[in-house]
Amino acid sequence: MIMLKDVSKTFTLHNQGGAVIPVMTGVSLTVAPGECVALTGRSGSGKSTLMRMIHGNYLAASGEILVGGLDVAKASPREILALRREELGYVSQFLRVVPRVPTIDVVAEPLLTLGTAAEEARDRAAALLARLNLPERLWSLSPTTFSGGEQQRVNIARGFIHPYPAMLLDEPTASLDAINREVVLGLIADAKARGAAILGIFHDEEARARVCDRLLDVTGFTPGLAA
């Protein structure tokens, strides 16, 4: 479902004398449907960079990034938008939303863009927020003022509201208490069971051990860090 072939990434800093910084090289990996793969490697080794490239947020310098049938490295912006809308879910560490929009609408939005009726979208959002133990009195408030753990759960709900066949998870359990961590691990297990291909970053080793089928150390792809 997700397949990278010899992908590399460089940053060119035009305002600092045009310095070219190679950050990743020779990345190849595969994530099959129903599989969960964890990226490992120390901080700065390029785990997030890799996830961002697969999401189309960073441009790859070379190589192929296949998600479903689409090569993200060469796809047009419109194709990437369609991919994100229908096939590729993403749970980031950061919540980026229009201020003042109620939490329930933030969570329902991906369904609305898919054309789901507003009422059904809200019902599904409500069910998911309830499963994640977010108090109902918060649903009508904007998540911008929430605590880290609450924002994290909003992000997760937004990422799991649609059964994406491919998912990217960036630290999904980082700021959660034990109960909610269980809920999230359950969501991941459910996604795997329905055949989703999942690539994630988990600093939480116990969580990683429970849901991930394989580990992939990205240090080997990082110029200067590779042994």
Partner: peptide, 18 residues
């Protein structure tokens, strides 16, 4: 020109970076 978040997060042109 390109995808909005890509241009903002990984700008390629010197002016955009600035």
């Amino acid at each position: 020109q390109g995808l909005t978040d890509q241009v903002l997060d990984d700008p390629q042109h010197g002016y955009t970076q600035l």
